[in-house]
């Protein structure tokens, strides 16, 4: 009878308390977003781990390719002038 439609995969993000960002907790299968939220509550917050949950269908996430990490992230490595320690200040200036 079933034409083999599997429940899609969802990524689960949980805010553990107000003031903190939502963090990726894991994934699960569910028929729709509403069920993904309910399942996420049972799978990832059985011990008060969260106050807010986001669910995103996994196929909607675009991820960078680790094979391109060189051109993607290396350009930032030689830009030391983006860090405060690059600038020389006299010791008398205590906080800046």
């Amino acid at each position: 009878m079933s034409d083999k439609k599997n429940w899609p995969l969802w990524e689960i993000f949980v805010r553990s308390k107000n003031g903190l960002e939502h963090r990726h907790f894991g994934s699960l299968h569910a028929a729709d977003a509403e069920m993904a939220l309910e399942n996420a509550r049972d799978v990832y917050t059985r011990r008060n781990e969260g106050v807010s949950i986001w669910v995103v269908e996994s196929k909607n996430i675009t991820a960078s390719n680790p094979e391109h990490n060189g051109e993607m992230f290396e350009p930032a490595q030689d830009k030391v002038y983006r860090h405060p320690t690059f600038y020389d200040l006299p010791d008398e200036v205590k906080h800046m």
Partner: peptide, 10 residues
């Protein structure tokens, strides 16, 4: 049948 019904409902 429960899994199928949930999918059909969604």
């Amino acid at each position: 049948w429960v899994r199928d019904a949930a999918m059909a409902h969604a």
